[in-house]
Design a protein around this nucleic acid. Structure first.
Lengths: 333, 333
DNA sequence: AATCTACAGGAAAACGTTTTCCTGTTCTTG
DNA sequence: CAAGAACAGGAAAACGTTTTCCTGTAGATT
């Protein structure tokens, strides 16, 4: 390249980066050769000298899930706009894989990490203790690192969801939640539910609590388990829309009408919430924007070269649609 | 690192890569220091000397879409198993963005590309003419490059879907299709539909043909447009499940029953096909496995260092569920 | 005992850039 | 007119590895 233009590599670098004035004659020679050969500098060589890769590691538990797939799109858009690209990894809730990927991120010298941790284990702790890399945590309140995290107030949102059902006259309210170690969609959402019941003077009925990964089949199974009890709830708080949909499927398959026979409120406002019938009453969180904001926050850390602990609490919103109604207290409840 | 162990960098490299025998004494010294410091060689420096990045560029039009999000998971899994990582980009069907990303892929010296092209333009052509990089095309029959492509037989699948409706007694069959320039989900699927009608001696009724991007709102809109005609179809072939769901939503919102008043067959077998009610009759394609296979095929190209033109035609499968029925010819049809 | 062979390990080149430092020319300025 | 300033451009170092090539020592072979 430099040879073809009859100049030094230095000069080539200068015209490409505009880092120092170059006479118009040489500049033109170089530019012509660039046009002709389609030359473009190697990003990896650049990366080596700058110790920057312009790559962001994005680690999430699953992509085939509206929440995460929209989040990815948000993150990608902001990354692209700032000259970054995304290295995507899927952890499938597997802690070992997570730590494994973390060290891949390190070896590849990624400029930053957006990380939806499933559970912050000692290995995670160790990694972040030994190694400094701009990070934003997603969906969980990770307090033990100097890095920001971004999430909605799951406790409050769940409190509101439950309260909403209570206000509709329901006193027997079950919950379909994530696994306990999943702080956000398991523990925190359960806490909100529990608190709302307690504040209303209602008891938590353990038979109406079902925990498992958020997927449609578990929603179905969970609802089945609960409907096989002697005493039945009149409303359910499903901690994700997929759970809600699975539950509704079970109920409809067994002759129950929603919301007349059972009120169900979901969580996420996934695309399917509106296309599903009945349309889901749900708690909306803007996953696209959360991905975008996480990326902004990360890039800020990277360019400013300093990280400050920030809690970014995103707003949520209860959206009333068709899957919930006033209690009618019928059946054998 | 080398200093701390009192050896040369050469030796460090040798123990890490086992590339040449090292005396047990030095080996131990080096290994100890590695343990202590958590040293790991820089992948970017390695990339520079090997001219390999172990990175695969994956470009798709959208991630918040079951087909693609599952495909990503399949691809990621195979990549991971072979020591590759994925650089993910989202093109949003924007040709300029696509070409832009292609040159980013080139500059970053990615080892290969998995590419779901929206439309193969001259700029695409130019890129692949000027630059050699192992590639696998997804979802479209790109014949003009030496690289493999992987897809289902959209013509045949659509023929079968339409034939299925015809066999149910339907003679008035509409279609909700992708845009024309989208060869697979627009053009090819339309061709299959048309051919099936023709072979059955039925005419294509232009008023029952609706084209637009595959999303739920367009399904709704498309169905609306068609239902506002004087003469109405008794069955619809929706070229994607999201279109089908949108269409059904429209119909149900206006008092039609599925499948009694209108049969609808979808395409994709997205997760929502079974959780939606009525459960969607649809054409199934295994997107996870297509992603996985695309990645296998790409990695093969990369390690064997030769590419041969291959057509990988994935099987599809008509799955009969609840959204289709024998024609009943009622209403004013 | 002298040469040859094996072999461990280091020095240096290479990968493709950016950046620092230096050189030589031209232009100012007193 | 000489000395300094301004400036364009190149040489070389640096980034962190791998790999090639060389060296020195110890053991084997005549």
């Amino acid at each position: 390249m430099a040879q073809k233009a009859g100049v030094s590599v230095t000069t080539v670098s200068r015209v490409i980066n505009n880092s120092k004035p170059v006479s118009s004659e040489l500049r033109e020679r170089v530019e012509r050769v660039i046009k002709e050969t389609g030359f473009a500098p190697s990003e990896v060589a650049r990366g080596l000298v700058h110790r920057k890769t312009k790559l962001i590691g994005l680690m999430i538990p699953k992509v085939a899930n509206t929440f995460f797939s929209q989040l990815i799109e948000g993150a990608e858009q902001v990354a692209k706009a700032n000259g970054f690209n995304i290295l995507l990894t899927v952890s499938h809730m597997d802690m070992e894989k997570e730590v494994d990927y973390l060290s891949i991120f390190k070896d590849r010298q990624l400029d930053g990490i957006i990380f939806s941790v499933s559970q912050f284990t000692n290995l995670h702790r160790q990694f972040f203790n030994e190694f400094e890399i701009p990070t934003v945590f997603l969906g969980q309140q990770i307090k033990e690192t100097p890095y920001p995290y971004i999430l909605i107030d799951n406790f409050k949102a769940s409190y509101e969801a439950t309260k909403y059902l209570i206000n509709k006259g329901h006193e027997k309210i079950g919950i379909l939640k994530g696994p306990d170690y999943d702080i956000s969609t398991g523990y925190e959402r359960y806490r909100g539910y529990q608190q709302a019941l307690q504040d209303a003077g209602l008891a938590v009925h353990d038979d109406w609590v079902f925990s498992d990964f958020h997927d449609i089949n578990n929603g179905y199974r969970g609802m089945k388990t609960i409907m096989e009890q002697d005493e039945l709830p009149t409303a359910m708080f499903a901690c994700s829309d997929v759970m809600a949909v699975g539950a509704i499927n079970y109920l409809q398959d067994h002759g129950f009408r929603i919301p007349q026979d059972m009120s169900i409120i979901g969580f996420d406002d996934a695309e399917l919430s509106t296309m599903f019938r009945p349309k889901l009453t749900t708690i909306r969180q803007d996953s696209f924007e959360m991905g975008a904001e996480a990326m902004r926050c990360l890039i800020e850390q990277i360019v400013e070269k300093k990280t400050e602990k920030k809690e970014i609490i995103f707003p949520h919103q209860l959206i009333e649609r068709e899957s919930t109604a006033e209690t009618t207290n019928y059946l054998r409840r």
